[in-house]
């Protein structure tokens, strides 16, 4: 396959990319629905982020190993099956080993199958590059997603509910609107604007 001749970007750039310059939520604007639905508190955001991170790394790993075997015409169904297998396996394992956590995030874990960010990383990266860069890409993209989820969760929880990680910080609820789904979009929009501004500043 001609793809194998592509040169993988250097590792440092790979790591930085997922975290900042191509952050799944703030830059690629992928998987915004779950990002909005789940991030009304830091804890939910963190749990969801961790689950996505794990699925992203494991799926990238699987696709990178078997990339030469997968037929080009059926690659998308195969990506979906791989993601679904990892998600279901994780769903069952968590339910058996960590029922407390599972009772809180079990509902969201099944949603990961349809996450645009994971399938897009498999299509754009893991199916074209060797094992190590693919895993690194999955690692950084997953971490970037985790970071975004925690940041949005923290802002919404503090400003919307006056608490952080369930601990009361301010007695009043400064902007109650932020814990509602619409508030999630506002938070993401403002954060995107802030990151654009920071990046512009870096280049000027």
């Amino acid at each position: 396959m001609s793809f194998d001749k592509l040169q993988a970007p250097p590792f440092r750039e790979l790591l930085w990319r997922g975290f900042f310059s191509e952050n799944p939520v703030f830059r690629l604007a992928l998987s915004l629905c779950p990002a909005v639905a789940v991030t009304n508190s830091v804890k939910n955001g963190l749990m969801m982020g961790l689950a996505v991170w794990a699925v992203q790394v494991l799926s990238s790993l699987t696709i990178a190993i078997f990339r030469n075997f997968i037929h080009d015409k059926v690659r998308i169904p195969i990506y979906t099956i791989v993601i679904a297998v990892w998600v279901t396996a994780m769903d069952m394992t968590l339910a058996a080993l960590a029922p407390k956590i599972y009772s809180e995030i079990g509902l969201y874990i099944k949603l990961i199958v349809a996450f645009a960010i994971i399938i897009s990383r498999l299509e754009l990266f893991a199916s074209k590059f060797p094992l190590i860069p693919s895993v690194l890409d999955g690692f950084s993209m997953g971490l970037g997603f985790l970071f975004a989820m925690v940041l949005i969760g923290a802002i919404r929880e503090v400003l919307g509910n006056g608490t952080i990680w369930g601990v009361t910080l301010i007695e009043v609820r400064p902007i109650l609107f932020l814990v509602l789904p619409a508030g999630g979009f506002f938070t993401i929009g403002l954060l995107m604007a802030a990151l654009n501004w920071v990046e512009k500043g870096r280049h000027v």
Partner: peptide, 16 residues
């Protein structure tokens, strides 16, 4: 996929 899920299910189901 079915094989992997079957194994995982059999391992986790009694615990659950």
């Amino acid at each position: 996929a079915a094989l992997i899920l079957g194994v995982v299910f059999n391992l986790t189901e009694p615990k659950k």
